[in-house]
């Protein structure tokens, strides 16, 4: 696939926001001694990230003005569900924020609902990709799990950095959570990589054109200047680039953060940097997530002449 930056930003930003929110809510549930301001600021951060993600996603749409329609097909479409849950999550976080701000209480209930929505959103986002049956790289529970783990990891890293200002006492705890989440994310993502490396395509050129012969080679795809199908489904990068990006994102999104988070226990000023690095790593990870997926339609679009 050709990775679309709008979707990369949407999923990474909201993912971090969801992770951050889950941690905020957990903090509240564990009755940590922090001011409402911490939750308000945190919620603002969550809203900001998600809003940015949402904004980015609009760039993906041909007709953003009609985007409300995307909520209509929740019965069948995970994308529709994702939009609804995302809106619900944003709304609920906003209510949660207002509740903290107004001091009216109900934060536990609202936060709980928002957390459920955050979790649901991870599921929806993951399922958007799992639902594309033909994309073998995506059709795995690991997809949902990894969206969740990477959201939590980046959310927790962000939380630890954020806590530097709002709740310095919590920093070590957040770092611990971030370490665990990042480690799990590393495991989950590695598992997905290993799985995908072993995938055998069930769809072949033979089944694509219905001719049983071991040697079939395309000579013309019917459009020498390219078409939507040659643009949308190919990353357009060299094999060398693809080979390089895999270790790069693993290092940047997981290995370096693990090391620096540990170092962050003693050098907390590192934490904002860790978040930035991890986020960059996750951008690369998400880019690769799309690029790695080899759509069977590509069997039909291999060669011009």
């Amino acid at each position: 696939m050709r990775p679309a930056f709008s979707i990369i930003f949407l999923t990474t930003l909201t993912g971090a926001g969801q992770g951050l929110f889950l941690l905020l809510y957990a903090t509240e549930m564990l009755h940590a001694a922090v001011t409402p301001g911490f939750y308000i600021g945190g919620s603002l951060l969550v809203l900001g990230l998600s809003a940015l993600g949402l904004l980015a996603s609009f760039f993906h749409l041909g007709h953003p003005s009609r985007s409300w329609r995307a909520m209509t097909m929740w019965r069948t479409s995970w994308l529709s569900r994702e939009v609804i849950v995302l809106m619900g999550f944003l709304g609920m976080v906003l209510l949660y924020l207002l509740a903290h701000w107004s001091g009216l209480g109900l934060t536990a209930v609202l936060g709980g609902m928002a957390s459920v929505l955050a979790l649901g959103l991870f599921v929806c986002t993951g399922m958007v990709y799992v639902a594309i049956k033909v994309m073998k790289e995506w059709v795995s529970p690991l997809t949902v799990a990894n969206f969740f783990l990477m959201g939590c990891a980046s959310g927790a890293t962000l939380a630890s950095a954020y806590a530097l200002v709002g709740a310095p006492d919590l920093v070590p705890h957040f770092i611990e959570v971030a370490l665990i989440a990042t480690l799990l994310a590393l495991l989950g993502r590695s598992a997905a990589l290993i799985r995908n490396a072993r995938l055998k395509p069930t769809t072949t050129l033979q089944s694509a054109i219905g001719i049983r012969h071991p040697r079939i080679v395309q000579k013309a795809q019917g459009a020498m200047g390219g078409s939507f199908n040659t643009r949308e489904f190919f990353h357009g990068k060299s094999d060398a680039f693809i080979r390089a990006i895999k270790p790069a994102f693993i290092t940047l999104a997981f290995v370096v953060p693990l090391a620096l988070l540990a170092a962050g226990l003693s050098r907390p000023w590192l934490l904002p940097l860790v978040f930035v690095l991890q986020y960059l790593g996750l951008l690369a990870e998400r880019w690769f997530f799309f690029a790695e997926a080899n759509h069977p339609q590509n069997l039909y679009y291999q060669i011009i002449s």
């Binding site: 019917g222 459009a223 020498m224 200047g225 060669i303 002449s305």
Partner: peptide, 24 residues
């Protein structure tokens, strides 16, 4: 012109390989 925007020289694979010419 979207169907034939430019042209290639078609060479039998064995002939091309023998001449050290790459596909594409």
């Amino acid at each position: 012109r979207q169907i034939h925007a430019h042209n290639y020289l078609y060479v039998n694979s064995a002939t091309a390989q023998a001449a050290g010419v790459e596909d594409g």
